[in-house]
Design a protein around this nucleic acid. Sequence first.
RNA 1: GCCCCUAUAGUUUAAUGGAUAAAACUGCGGACUUCUAAGCCGUUGAUCUAGGUUCGAUUCCUGGUGGGGGCACCA
Length: 560
Amino acid sequence: MKETLTFALKEILAAQGHEGVSFVVDYPTDKNTEADYFTNVAMVLAGKRGLAPKVVAEEIVELLKAKQLPQLASVIVAGPGFINFTLNREYHTEQLQESLTHPRFGSNESWSGKKVLVEYTDPNPFKEFHIGHLFTNAVGESIARLFMMNGAETFRVNYQGDVGLHVAHALWGIQQLGLTSDTITPKTLGQAYALGATTYKADESAALAIREINKKVYSREDEIINELYDLGRTVSLQYFETIYAMVDTQFDEYFFESEAGPHGKALVLDNPDIFPESDGARIFDGEARGLHTRVFLNKEVLPTYEAKELALAKLKAERFGGYDLSIISTANEINEYFKVLLCAMKEVYPDLAPKTEHIGHGMVRLTTGKMSSRTGDVISAIDFITEVKQAAEEKMKESGTVVDNEVAEAVAIAAIKYSTLRGSILQDSIFDKDQALSFEGDSGPYLQYTYARINSVLEKAAAALVYPDLTTIPSTAYEVEKLVLRFPSVVENALTERAPHKVATYLTELAGAFNSFYAVEKIADSNDKYAPYKAAVTKLVGTTLKNGLWTLGIKAPERM
RNA sequence: GCCCCUAUAGUUUAAUGGAUAAAACUGCGGACUUCUAAGCCGUUGAUCUAGGUUCGAUUCCUGGUGGGGGCACCA
């Protein structure tokens, strides 16, 4: 419809010799208008023609009316010169009918035939999986699902840092603490890491020992180190899997720094012109290219994060037989690194660089400041999920519903994911426990609750022999009916802008409109001739909530 | 010091350059012997600062201030 209106307006402009004027046709954001669409074309044009916007608007309205578009009920001039469109009931009903029978309402084919890789979460074995990882997982998962909703062949990728100085920190800590196969757990690994990391900064001789361990991890020549390493790595990775299951993420492919490392090293050594030697290390001279200089191979001839990441791009392309887009979603603290990295990639892999996109999202910060696994000042993801889950169970007891383990977990994950996805992912989020533990208002559980309630009322309706049907409809559309039809365009727009929160805010607005509708209208009432229509709208809202929550990576329990 | 990001009710967040800046939480006040009260209705309350561009600026540009991140062998 938007396209139809845009096309008609362009025709009018062309006839007047005003091609190329940019204007918008969109849903009104103003709550006080009943219109289905608006355009600002008259205001844009008025500036060019030196006329009052209202005069231009009136003129365009007359020309539009002459076209007699069948879908329109009315076209009027409003406010300072907006043109508002109202659709007629028949067209509206048609849209409702199509949406109800759509196999997956909200999805589209705009990325059909395209292969997209989304890399996210990227935790480091030997370090704690904390609430920051939960944040980055929620962001990446929703980006991946947005691509799926837009028709892309999507692959989820996880790149885990199983080698590097942080591992040496942890291994040194393990030795100091005397940990063995019986005592190496996710918790003790975190402690070992914190011990190693803090000592590394404070104690010169310990730092030397840790650097030696780092070399051994890469060379795999030391039996004792190998044993501890393999043990710790396995414990960490198994632990991560339990978390991925909780947050409903299934990765298609895992990459490790240990496999990217040798390729990265070779790549740097094979390109001495791009990575010249400087002060014993191999660097990329970013400064000469308007950025900053970074080390790709350190003095010990070990590849740094940068070299590994570069090699990873190639590994991904090989593993997946090429791709149209490769997204890497991380916290924004490495935004600057990534600019340098992409610059280097342009020179090393000119075919891959344009297909690579970094999405730097905000960081989770505590009221006391930044989290640091180095000092052990982190909130473990598992601990946090467990706490929120307990609060959900508590809430179930209060409200008298059956306490269900699976539902409680779904609610807890919804609360956590929604709170990270409700606002722009670019902004930092301050960890607010009380807000996370609240299931009221603007929250994930609010959406789940609305969905569960819809199921319940549709069951009651069916029991009263009221089934969704659009044969008899009231003359004016309810707010919720108009809103629900916007879902597909929200999904498309959210992907274009890489903004999952557009889906979140939309769903909350929709749920709010539905709950208001629900409060005043009886749906399961066999005496009401409009009941089947209301049931149809209700059903579509339910489908929308379910698909929308899925897009955010949140489960929608049938009842709660 | 240099570079990047950022600033909206008391708090957490919305708003492709457009209409009276929208919600939630909190506070206060309501409705219901009706389909799930994790709900609904009402109410108080905000664009950091100084300029600029524009018919129109929370949005774009410049300076200032506050906050965050980065700046060579960590990731």
